[in-house]
């Protein structure tokens, strides 16, 4: 595999974790640290010029947004190294973490008493996204799979880590932030049926946490309406 030969220059052994839509994700030891390698391999279905442009842009946007978030105090994986030739990002493996998606699913299955805990989590997500948008970072692919919970040893509250910034970009437009929340809303409600209340909590805490939120929520309402009003002829 082409990816493996590129990687083998940098790491001894790489285990494929998953093949997402964005690329392959490997787990490896890099410079002595447990590392996640995200490789955007060539998509043969795309025109080569378009493919190269998109792949390069996304690699650059991903690492830029990670740094911008970290500077603002939003946890995101540390970038160790970027190879712009093979479009590989080498970053910190978030040890002992699980996705918010898995956490919600397992909590819902376990029992209903944990409803309060999930609401607190939703509120925390709302606060963090508000902070991210205040930094003008648009994530571009917000889902509960792209948020990790890292168990910290000392305090009880686990750390929320945002990942997968491949579709991210910088914008101060309320429209872009509103669409970002719309993408999350759809992913959230389709991955977790009957969680409208939970998502409402998330939006409430988003609204409270950012001074710029009224314009964003207004756009979110507009985008939702566009979906319902579309005539869908043909």
């Amino acid at each position: 595999m082409a990816g493996q030969t590129t990687l083998s220059r940098f790491v001894g052994k790489a285990d494929l974790v998953k093949q997402g839509a964005e690329g392959r994700v490997y787990r490896a030891q890099f410079l002595g640290k447990p590392t996640i390698v995200k490789e955007r391999f060539r998509k043969r279905y795309r025109h080569p010029v378009l493919d190269e442009k998109l792949t390069h842009r996304r690699t650059v946007q991903e690492v830029r947004s990670i740094l911008r978030c970290r500077r603002a105090g939003i946890s995101a994986p540390v970038v160790y190294f970027v190879d712009y030739t093979s479009h590989c990002i080498f970053m910190e493996e978030i040890a002992g973490s699980s996705t918010v998606r898995d956490h919600i699913v397992s909590t819902q299955q376990a029992n209903s008493c944990k409803e309060l805990e999930l609401q607190q989590l939703a509120e925390r997500i709302g606060r963090i996204l508000a902070k991210m948008h205040d930094e003008d970072v648009i994530h571009g692919d917000l889902t509960t799979s792209n948020m990790l919970l890292r168990c910290s040893s000392q305090d009880t509250e686990s750390d929320l880590v945002l990942i997968d910034f491949g579709l991210s970009y910088i914008s101060s437009l309320p429209e872009d932030k509103g669409v970002d929340l719309y993408v999350l809303e759809k992913a959230f409600l389709s991955s977790h049926p009957n969680t409208n209340v939970l998502f409402e909590k998330l939006l409430q805490s988003y609204t409270k946490s950012s001074k710029k939120s009224p314009a964003v929520i207004k756009k979110l309402d507009e985008v939702r309406l566009r979906g319902r009003k579309r005539s869908m002829v043909g």
Partner: peptide, 13 residues
């Protein structure tokens, strides 16, 4: 000839 055009994907939208 491939002419570059805007490319807009937002998550699954």
């Amino acid at each position: 000839q491939y002419v570059e055009l805007p490319y807009t994907v937002k998550g699954m939208d």
